[in-house]
Design a protein around this nucleic acid. Sequence first.
DNA 1: ACGTAAGCGAGACGGTACGTCGCGTCTTACC
DNA 2: GGTAAGACGCGACGTACCGTCTCGCTTACGT
Lengths: 207, 207, 207, 207
Amino acid sequence: MMQNSGVVEVHEDLRVRRTRKMLVAAFMELTVEKGFAAVTVRDITDRAMVNRSTFYRHFLDKYDLLDQYMTDVYGSASDEKLAEEKVARKKDFAPPGLTSLLKHIQEFPDFYRVMLGAQGDPKFIDRFRKNSERRLRALLEYVGDGDPNGSPIELRLSYASCAGIGVILWWLENNQPCTVEQLAVWLSQLTGTSVGLAIKPTQSAQS
Amino acid sequence: MMQNSGVVEVHEDLRVRRTRKMLVAAFMELTVEKGFAAVTVRDITDRAMVNRSTFYRHFLDKYDLLDQYMTDVYGSASDEKLAEEKVARKKDFAPPGLTSLLKHIQEFPDFYRVMLGAQGDPKFIDRFRKNSERRLRALLEYVGDGDPNGSPIELRLSYASCAGIGVILWWLENNQPCTVEQLAVWLSQLTGTSVGLAIKPTQSAQS
Amino acid sequence: MMQNSGVVEVHEDLRVRRTRKMLVAAFMELTVEKGFAAVTVRDITDRAMVNRSTFYRHFLDKYDLLDQYMTDVYGSASDEKLAEEKVARKKDFAPPGLTSLLKHIQEFPDFYRVMLGAQGDPKFIDRFRKNSERRLRALLEYVGDGDPNGSPIELRLSYASCAGIGVILWWLENNQPCTVEQLAVWLSQLTGTSVGLAIKPTQSAQS
Amino acid sequence: MMQNSGVVEVHEDLRVRRTRKMLVAAFMELTVEKGFAAVTVRDITDRAMVNRSTFYRHFLDKYDLLDQYMTDVYGSASDEKLAEEKVARKKDFAPPGLTSLLKHIQEFPDFYRVMLGAQGDPKFIDRFRKNSERRLRALLEYVGDGDPNGSPIELRLSYASCAGIGVILWWLENNQPCTVEQLAVWLSQLTGTSVGLAIKPTQSAQS
DNA sequence: ACGTAAGCGAGACGGTACGTCGCGTCTTACC
DNA sequence: GGTAAGACGCGACGTACCGTCTCGCTTACGT
């Protein structure tokens, strides 16, 4: 029953990698089409042209599939990423971690649009939010707190990390009306103001 | 099939009202206990001590129950409320609509904590967010746009309305560490800054 | 989970009786066609034109179906039957219990042919055998033991009750080449000799 | 698909013989423990410490394993045995074939107890029965038919061969309460009487 | 003795059946 | 005659075995 969730096998069976890839792809397509809740394991395996029982050899259920995918994508990676984040953020640029996150989202815009919206999954949203909050907290710790209006720092963190989702949703629901870089700048400016980052961005990049 | 969903019967049968009340109460309790997704119709009717088929005489399914409940609570009401909102908001107070919303949440803190979090329902979150966005847009239209950093107004609206959820979640997940009024002030200050409301709050109320 | 196995409901729902009847009939047909082991629940429900899950509302599995059927047929009945058996058996007639058993078998000859043969079920055979042994033991107790060759009475009981199955199989596999009455006489003569019944049959009834 | 079932290889690979032996042993143990039906291929290979796919290199399935084992034990052998049988049976001794069969059973009493009982396999029982019937028919052909009560000879054969199983079951289920020789004498006496063998046993051997 | 063909371990995969659960509809027995 | 009780159709779930199929390794055998 070892599902080796998240464990990175260096050299996995070719068949295994192919099967997992097809299952993940089918899952994402179907999620976009009918919303996360409506996707069944049978749907996924039919689309992936894989036997249903094979699905269960790789994943416990669709939630586990999503989990493993998320862990693959920005799982424990963020730990090292956060370190370079602190170094990279000089003064008025958007943090590179944010930009790369947005770039990843840009690869699967429909999937994120659905998953973060009304057809999505609350656990996914929560995970996304907590992730943002973690990154933000690390950033804040580095640059300091300007304490804009006396509200608790935790409140402001929760405010800003949730707000980030709103920005991404706006971007996705309006067919990405600006570049990733532009969006990153706007978002980090807004975030900076809300959270009270001590370092103020001095200029805004134009799209 | 006529489920008279959402239609407000002026004088309903006493038994009907009692049954609905018990079903709604059971639903809310169970949602708090096991999360929205895990609640089944059988759970609800068992808890409410009502036959399962009776449930279907009142609601299409648990989503419909939630819907009807939401509509009852702040359904079409907001239209009139919004009007008085515009009048009420003088200069530096939190908008009364916000305060009354928070007060309502305060009556069912566990329910909202669950429903807006990882065990909640994406449709509920979405509805909540859209509602906030609508109220905010109406407010903005009234007080004008200070255009803080050149980002599109729609982006800032999405940012701020989502952020509001973050603040409420913080409040609920930390056992309401401040009064509703204090929270309303902090939230409206943050919102004002993010969205770029022309009228700035000048002071913060102390809890 | 209450399957009320064997409990006789006086007035069961019409639908329930119809469904159970159809399931049992389908089960018996299929057993004849493909042997007991090869019959699946799906087979049964398809044939009975009933949804598969409905099967599980009535029976735990096909073994339970068989069990309930057996209990219905000659379940606890034998207890009272055995009493009249002792009275009825005068001198040289086959015991009426045997005749009625054979008559029941004659109603479903194919079913018994299969179930007692190579395509049958060992538990069924065992149950059948134990039943015969019980009847025989009761009979023996009444008429006394002639002790033919010094072998233990239990050995002879096991011998004779198993032998009865052989006779029935012969009868069924050869398309019932004689009447039930004739068969009963032959079988009870053979049994009497084997077991050592004190009362000897004096003549054989002709078909 | 060539499984060379039943074909006797003169010089088989050492590994092959070892593997088959372990599989058969594991199968018999497990059959005793959980009954034939409940034994799975995985059970067998786990117990035999052999890979599951190796099982399928030797046997089609567990039925085939049983079949091959049965054929090994008293497969076509009986043909020659039957010849000497006719010679050996003088007057009042149990036929030597019967005794040697019982001796074989005595080597694996638990296995036969299970396989012939409620946890056994109907095909096995049938095969056993048919084998007995064949032996009995051959015997009868040699010694003649005393025609005891007018019942068809085939009926009496079926009666007696089935009865033999009853005797063996009695013996096994009661922990072999007498010697093989004693049992053989009793059984052949009973059989003789039932079937109507012309030669009567004149004395009974004492255990 | 030693190279080679085989037997074997490991395990992914397509299948099929299982028994359970929850849904929403619809019938029936009973008050 | 109207309603609660619950039977039913439907379909997804996760599990368990089955039998097939690679793919390397190792091991007994035959020259």
